[in-house]
Amino acid sequence: MNMSILRLMLDFFKTGLFAVGGGLATLPFLYEMSDTHGWFSHADVADMIAISESTPGAIGINMSTYAGFKTGGIAGGILASLSLAAPSLIIILFIASFLDKFKGNKYVERAFYGLRPASIAMISAAGINVAKTSLVNVPALQEGNFAAFFSWKAILLAILLFFAQKKVKLHPVFFLAFAALIGVIFRFAE
């Protein structure tokens, strides 16, 4: 058992080191791991995508916890997740101390002039992706059913939340909980 946990940690360390660009970038690595070691099946990965969408936390972390748990129990789950997090932790520490040193450097400032709009563009793209799965029904459009394209219940809730957030100063968690409740009451998934 010890050997397989070591192997598992090594593989998730590798994934953490080479998967650039967030959670979904870990998927190819997970499929490869499934093929070579059989710690989990492709169907498990698909399930984990669904679970990751319905729990907090990034898919990479969730998958490493799940695979680690299957291989080595609770300790395995924790160790695999930490292995995934370790490489980026080290890399970010290097970059952070570099930035401290070069704070105010004109080349760094210029780079950030370009990085900031890029950062917002990425956030906007992420927003569009969430909107695609929550406010509209893309498959309906492909079938030519325009009436079913807009999820009216969801759009109404979105408008309500948008203005409520401007009026009422509450922690975002309250709005998330409210949206979850509305989703259950009005059966948003149907």
Partner: peptide, 20 residues
């Protein structure tokens, strides 16, 4: 779970728009 998260996704969308 499916219904709750369909609702939560709507809220996430709005939170992101306001942050932008």
């Amino acid at each position: 779970v499916k219904n709750a998260f369909a609702g939560i996704r709507v809220c996430v969308c709005i939170l992101i728009i306001q942050a932008i």
